[in-house]
Amino acid sequence: MNIFHDANRKQIANRRVKDKSLHMIFLLATSVGIIALTVLLVDIIIDGWSNLSPDLFTNFPSRKAEDAGMKSGLVGSMYIMLILVPLSFILGVGAAIYLEEYAPKNKLTRLIQLNISTLAGVPSIVYGILGLALFVRMLSLQKSLISGALTMTLLVLPIIIVAAQEAIRAVPRSRRDASFALGATKWQTVSRSVLPSSLPGILTGVILAASRAIGETAPLIIVGASTYVAFLPKSLTDAFTAMPIQIYNWISRPQVAFKDLGASAIIILLAILILLNITAVIIRNKYQKNI
């Protein structure tokens, strides 16, 4: 008896063709991104590799491309990170713990939740304007390092809260129950059971948020980062600049030498970003093994 009628064979062949072609479409979709990224990287490296020199780290900006460096931008970005990471960690994880562990599950909590998720998608320039109104004008912190760092903290806060919430939510209910069964209080449960297990996820979120902040330009320009800064900030209220601002300035100049210098600066920025991301991966792997 012929189990496979001709019609069935045809159907099967059709499905296989469909499967094959979808396979190709998805492969194409993946390669578009990868090819674009590769072209971008190769282009940047060709333009910028030869200019990579210690001068870029030790010199202040200059009108002469051969003397110009981005010491002030590098240090400015680093200071912003030094303020942003601890501050956004404390505020972000605190908010996540409250929302996940303490907050009553009612309409208000759901509204807050919705707002935070929305805030995570708000364009960065809006945070810049908020920072200008709140920190620079209302709190009269002036156009200073601290204004810039606080604005960036606001910018990444929703991202960290969402990431930390996901991580906390992923801790099995049974762990909490076990802890409560031993007579632990809520805080004991959170601090000794929930947080340690969710830490890898939280830290990954924090580092990814930091790497977003380090590449942001628009909000910093609005809160008053200067473009030419030939000194390092010595206090929180000093004027400052940051790497992306320096890069944007160099790229938009007419002289080719500055464009190449911009490419070199981009390589350094990318290297720092990759370093941050590798750190995130390593932290995740390390702690996940221990649990």
Partner: peptide
């Protein structure tokens, strides 16, 4: 920027940040 750069060589303690 060019003026600020040269000015710094003469008066290193005067800070001149320039924004755009």
């Amino acid at each position: 920027e060019a003026v600020a750069e040269e000015f710094r060589k003469v008066h290193p303690d005067v800070r001149v940040p320039v924004g755009v």
